[in-house]
Design a protein around this nucleic acid. Structure first.
Lengths: 258, 258
DNA sequence: CGCCAGCTTGAGCAGCCTCAATGCACGTGG
DNA sequence: CCACGTGCATTGAGGCTGCTCAAGCTGGCG
């Protein structure tokens, strides 16, 4: 694993409230001493962790990153897909056999917190931001648990597709079909959905025959009627970056919130 | 859903560092204005949420609580079992169709944060505690995802049993068999493991025939050789209440930590 | 042009689910 | 005290979903 991983050092500041895609990322980047720089990762390269032992946060700018766990015997489970705008954080992905890696050539912002200790008040903001991030990740993980525990293959693929459309789909007009470029292989999808690649392929073919999706190529597809697709998707994953449900003591901590 | 749910109002203070079972619970209970009281829940009763709309934290003192999601068509997925000493928190379990309920008669501590707003510094401690709780829950959820996505039935049941032994098992001597009272039905186990009750029963019978567990009754069992059981359990859930991996900015925030 | 990785499709099989019958413990009421 | 109902656990038969193995197929790239 190369040490410097071909990083381009291009430090810059995150402009709070404008350039930043996610509110909690802004909070992190706004911490005094936080350093933000652009880094690149090639396909298959691990994000964070491999280097100096310090743990950074990353924001995907382009490309796709997957958090995954790999067991001793090689079985692989994808925990999450991170698409442009998403935060890649080391929370939970610090366990043995668990890391994040780029599924394609990827550009990221690296947010490193190693400046002077924060003043009173800033510490609360920082912890609040970390809490919020962990909370969003937790909500996503719980949806994933329900999906793997109680949905059949077709439902899982439908949930996955609908989630992808909402996250990275493009629509040319208000009633036009959604266009979607799937940035991962059938095997990646399978490892996320607790299936295998052949089964995913078969299910996609079935959805294709049913007219729910159209494929121009294995990775380029169209969803003519998102509502129809979502009728097959009994759970709705929390969209990445959406503000989580009110934290339990938000009201109580009113003035401590950013 | 009754308003007061047969609660016994018995306010008391949590003694930080001694009586408390969990460090982060102590942090919550130590927040100025936090009110701790003992409440009781009957089997099947929901924990929190149903009442005034305020969200509390709970600590299980005896009995068992399960966090669960139920889909529109009735499919049920258990998210976690909470055994004595565990924290029951509203994080993630605030989504639609998602709540915690007592699996048997249960005694809990209710920690309610509604006092005067905390002073500077205390807010940071509180958010840090909330972060830590969310982080532990996240680690547990990710293990659950791997289990449901990539383990077969026998492995899931083995992971579950080993987890239960480590959490609520009793051992009469250093080399004696572990004794375990399972506080949930086969169906509860199945809904946690993404299986059905008959399959769980069959797998337990197989483990019984293999000499890995012995059953005195459906709920009372013995594990003569925990290492043998764990050889069938390819993942190890993070034990409840164990301090999570170093939060990413712990070093940076050194003096803000409790 | 050939190679190779990834995708698709098929055949056969294993694991898990569904449905059903039975057994057991417990509580209730005659 | 016993008969009965109820809820849960167990076990079996049969079927379906998804996995394994294998054979094409396709598109990108050297």
């Amino acid at each position: 694993m190369p040490r410097d991983e071909g990083r381009i050092s291009e430090p810059h500041r995150c402009k709070v409230g404008s350039a930043c895609v996610r509110r909690h990322v802004c909070r992190l980047a706004a911490v005094p001493g936080a350093e933000v720089r652009t880094v690149r990762a090639a396909k298959g390269q691990r994000i964070g962790g491999a280097g100096s032992g310090s743990s950074c946060f990353y924001v995907v700018r382009s490309g796709t990153v997957a958090a995954q766990a790999v067991m001793a015997d090689g079985r692989r489970q994808l925990i999450a897909f991170h698409t442009p705008g998403d935060l890649v954080c080391p929370l939970g992905v610090g366990a043995a056999g668990c890391w994040a890696e780029a599924l394609s050539a990827t550009v990221l912002w690296e947010v490193r917190l190693h400046g002077p200790a924060p003043r009173e008040g800033e510490a609360a903001r920082l912890w609040a931001a970390l809490f919020e991030i962990a909370h969003v990740e937790l909500a996503r993980a719980l949806t994933h648990v329900v999906m793997l525990g109680r949905l059949d293959g077709t439902e899982r693929v439908s949930v996955f597709l609908a989630d992808m459309v909402r996250r990275i789909g493009r629509q040319s007009g208000p009633r036009a079909a959604w266009r979607l470029s799937l940035p991962m292989s059938r095997e990646d999808m399978a490892d996320y959905l607790g299936l295998n690649a052949e089964t995913v392929s078969r299910i996609l073919s079935r959805l294709k025959k049913a007219g729910i999706v159209r494929f121009q190529s294995p990775s380029e597809c169209e969803v003519p009627d998102l509502a129809l697709l979502e009728r097959h998707a009994p759970v709705r994953p929390a969209l990445a970056g959406i503000t989580p449900a009110e934290p339990p003591s938000e009201r109580y901590l009113g003035e401590a919130c950013v």
